[in-house]
Every structure is written in C-alpha cells, then in structure tokens.
Nucleic acid binder design. Sequence first.
DNA 1: TATTGTTATACTCTATAACTATA
DNA 2: TATAGTTATAGAGTATAACAATA
Lengths: 151, 151
Amino acid sequence: MNEVKNPAGLPSTLSFRLGTLGSAVADRFAARIAAYDLKPKHAGLLTALSLEQVASQQELALRLGVAPSLVVALADHLERLGAIERLRDPADRRRQVLTLTDRGRELLRDCTTAARTLDEELTAGLTAAERGAFLRVLGRLAADAGLPTGD
Amino acid sequence: MNEVKNPAGLPSTLSFRLGTLGSAVADRFAARIAAYDLKPKHAGLLTALSLEQVASQQELALRLGVAPSLVVALADHLERLGAIERLRDPADRRRQVLTLTDRGRELLRDCTTAARTLDEELTAGLTAAERGAFLRVLGRLAADAGLPTGD
DNA sequence: TATTGTTATACTCTATAACTATA
DNA sequence: TATAGTTATAGAGTATAACAATA
C-alpha cells in the first residue's frame, strides 16, 4: 500500500526550476565574463550606472540590494580596470559620484554580447515564437519582483 | 550628441533575467523553508533521494554537483532532523546508503507546498495559459541543462 | 548629531586536501 | 593500491560594525 505520492514533486514547480536553472545560467555567464576580469556583480553595477547616468555609492547599494561596503570593493575593482570614474560631488563632498567611462561602456557591451551568445545556446531547441514569449514573461516576472528589465 | 546606446542592454537578455530572477526566487524559497530548518541544498538532496530511492553519498555528490564533503554535512543535518537514515551497504561496508524516512517525505512535501505557494505569488499576474507555457519551456531548458525536472 | 564612504572583522558557503576504514 | 566517507583547512563572497570626513 503505497503512500500517495506528490502528484508532482518539487522539480515540477516553477520556483525550483527557476532557482536551479538561474544558478546554472549565472555560473555559465560568470565563466564567460571572467575573461574580462569581471564578475556578475560588476556587470550589475555597470548596468545600473548605464541606466542611471550617475549615482552615489549609497544609491547603488540600495539599487543592487547589497551592503555599501560591497559597493566600495566593486567600485575599487572597476576603477582599477578603468571602467568607471569616481568624482566628488562638489555640492556634498561626502558623496562619490560614479560615472561610466568609454572603457566601461565597452566592457558592458562585451558582457551583453556574452549573454546574447549564451542565450542562443540555451534556446537552441526553441522556436522563435516560444523564445520570444518566454523572454517576455520572464521580463514581466522580473519587473514584478522589482528587478531591472531594460524596458 | 548621444552615443548610440546598446539597442537593448544586458537586462534585456534571457541569461541576465534568468540569473537575477532565479537568485531572487531562490532567496525567497530559502526564507520559507528556513522554518523547517532546511536550506535549498537540503531540499535538493531530499529530492534526489525521492527520485532515486537509494543512493550512496558519492553518487549524490555527483548528482547534485557538489563536493562529497558537502554531502556529509548535508546528510549529517538531515539525519539529525530524522529526515534520512544512513545504512551501511552490507556488500561494501565502505558505502553509506541514504534512504528517506517518513519524516523526510513529510519535510519534502512541506518544501513542495512552500514552492507552490511561491509559484502562485510569482505568477499572479499571468493567465493560466501563459503560466503553463512558461513552466513547460522552463522545464525544457532545465532538462537541456541536465537538471532534474520531475518528468 | 546624522550621513557617506571606508576599513576591519566575522560569518556563510563550499571546495581541496589529508586521513580512516574498508576493499 | 584504490575507493567511500570523514575531518581539517582554506578560500570566496558578503555582511556587520567601527571609523573618518563632511554636513
């Protein structure tokens, strides 16, 4: 007399699939941008700067959902790479305003290209329609969760 | 004279969205199963056991893609919770065969319920058809990536 | 006194390497 | 000698708390 099994277990849930697949994809993305001496969080910071134009480190910490001390470390690294510049805000000399350099925009383009290539590989088995619909729903879910979607 | 922007930047890619959304969902899932003194990796181990019936710790390490030493720590914890039993394989006394207990199956059901509840919240803004299509594509992508899908 | 950025420190997660017991 | 599991140790990543400069 078998127990009643879960009609379909944890792997059939959207949350589990999204979590495991997201982790796998993030790892693959990280491996590809490692060639530029960048990690996903660096790409996230560059992206935030490209959307916001300028931003203080506190604002970035809030936006990225990380501790301010981590923004210091990320910005230090990006500054060493020549990807960003730190400028004291003359109106409030406590604030450091971060801005993208040309090199930073170039690196962000490289990251985007790497992500697009990965997209192609991941969705090789999908029709164009399936892929488009999937991407749109993904964008809506991300927006609902308060994440950037570029729209 | 604005520079030409990326026609659509990193946040418009499937890889970026999957990675960020996956991370956010994983965090939320972790917060909910913390009430059972479990973390996502524990749920993954319980799931693997439920699919495989029995498994040695080495096999589990391979399946979960983690170091064997981590399986030790995860199994220690699950054993303390009464969720699994360790049995020496009589045929090869080096091997520990892990099996789910009734309590383990109960905990796995609790995790699945938590994931389903989270699913509902995440997809509240989608039609049933959109949701079904999204889940199916997610399953195909996960399967292509070698992850369990429960199918 | 409050706030921005920084530094110092600690904690979590996980892997690698050394070790024990079986084979 | 080789393998399963365990233990010891170390590294990455990130947070919290103390501190300095400025408001």
